[in-house]
Each structure stands twice: as structure tokens, then as C-alpha cells.
Amino acid sequence: MSKRIDVKKTYKLFIGGAFPRTESGRTYEVKNARGEFIANPCLASRKDLKDAVVAARAAHSGWSNATAYNRGQILYRIAEMLEGRRDQFVSEIIELAGVAPKKAQDEVDASIDLLVWYAGWTDKISALDGATNPVAGPYYNFTIPESLGVVGFIAPKKSALLGFVAGIAPIIASGNTVIALASESAPLPAMSLAEVIATSDVPAGVVNILTGKSAELAPWFASHMDIDGLDISGLDAKLVTEIKKSGAQNLKRIHSFKDISSPARILAFMESKTVWHPIGV
């Protein structure tokens, strides 16, 4: 009997809840730690990014108006689905990064736990950052944090799963929608996570994932006038000044982070809204 031939996966993009190929028809080669071919993921184009922004914008109203409880349960559901496919992610990380099994297991476990942590923040962030303000007059005045809108995320090159989860979870926890650019050298865990997200009741368009070259796509993220915020934690330090200059065109909120678990990551992509209401009979 001959040896069974594996059925290999075609890695595509994740836009608006579907898995399209890049419109550009381009791919690039990803190798494992031993330098062997693994896959030809999509080399996403500016047009793919534009499509993702349209999907993310369309999804924002529904997602930001979902209750915090609902959003929390959906983030928790992503953790549940990831736990169920733990072994797949462990072997992908071992294959790609060439790390010891224990290290890969730790990264997957930490990613699951981080999703649970951010799931719990959805209905608490307002208590942390909101306020009622004792103005000198007969007004009921309060301040609440609200989601910013559409946020881009340039994922870190290393810790392809944990670094990725640390970007998207806080962005969507508050009601934003996200377009994430996966690690250029290790995009496969992020694309497998798309399969997890697609089966976790996350509405279509809330999370969109592209694979490709950061140096090519980051400037288009920065100059897109319908992207409101940008997490550049994974951006090459050489590109930061250029990206921030370009983002000034629509006064994009551009931030990068060191901590993976911090409410600052949620609040960076929120806006404070203050409402005045007269008091009287």
C-alpha cells in the first residue's frame, strides 16, 4: 500500500467573513524553520486593503451597538474554539518557529488566556474610564468611552499567534472593527485563527486578516482616510516616522504597545464622549 498524500491547505485572506484570494493574484513563499517550503500565502494588495476597510466599516455599527455582554461572550467563544484546536496551533508554531513543544504550548495557552482576559474587559472598561462630572450648574453630565471605528493592526513578526491576539482582542473588545496584517514571515497561525474566528459568532467584517509585506501595505494603512486608528506594534522601527507623518492626513490615532495585557491597549482606540443634560421640572 502506498503512503497517503496529505491534503494541504490553501491559505487565503479573511475579508468580510469570507476567505477570498488576493485580487492581485500574487503569493509569496513561506518556509519552516528548517528552510523547507510550507505554503504560498496571499501577497495582499492595496485593493485588498480597501475591500477590507469597506467590510470593516460596514460591520462597525452593528458590532459597536452590540451589548458589552454580547461582545464579551463572543470574545470568550473565540477562546473556546481556540482551545478546541489547541493541538493544531501547537504543531503549526513548532513547524514555523522551530521551537520546543513546551514553548509552542505555552504560546497557545497564553493566547487562549489572553482572549479570556479581554473578554472580561468589555463590560468593565466604562467603569474604569467613564465619569460623572460635577459641573457647576443644573446639568447631569457624564463621560463614557466609545469605540473609535475602524482600526488597522500591523502584527509583530515574532510570537505570530500571541502577538496577533494581543493586537486584535483589545481592538475589538470595545466595539471597533479591525484589519490586521499578519506577521510577514510567520502568517500561518493568524490565518488559521481566521478559521477559529469564522466559527465563533464574530459578525462578518469585525475581524479582517491580510497576509503580505508590511513595508508595502503599512503606508496604505496610514494614508487610508477611512481608517481611524492604527496599532503599529509590529512595524519596522525605520518606518515609524513615515507612517506617523502619513497618518496625520486624517489625524489617525497611531499607537504601539509593549504590554500584551493592558487596559491601555483598549483605551488607546476609544474616544471619550461627554453628554450634558439639563436637570429641571
Binding site: N133, V135, A136, G137, N141, T274, H277, P278
Partner: peptide, 14 residues
């Protein structure tokens, strides 16, 4: 957002 008022300011109010 001012509801049924406008142009109100206060140091305690962001």
C-alpha cells in the same frame, strides 16, 4: 453632546 442645551463648559467636564 449637548442635549436641550448648547455651549456649556466646565472645568470638571472633558
Amino acid at each position: 453632546i449637548w442635549t436641550n442645551t448648547f455651549n456649556k463648559f466646565d472645568p470638571t467636564s472633558p
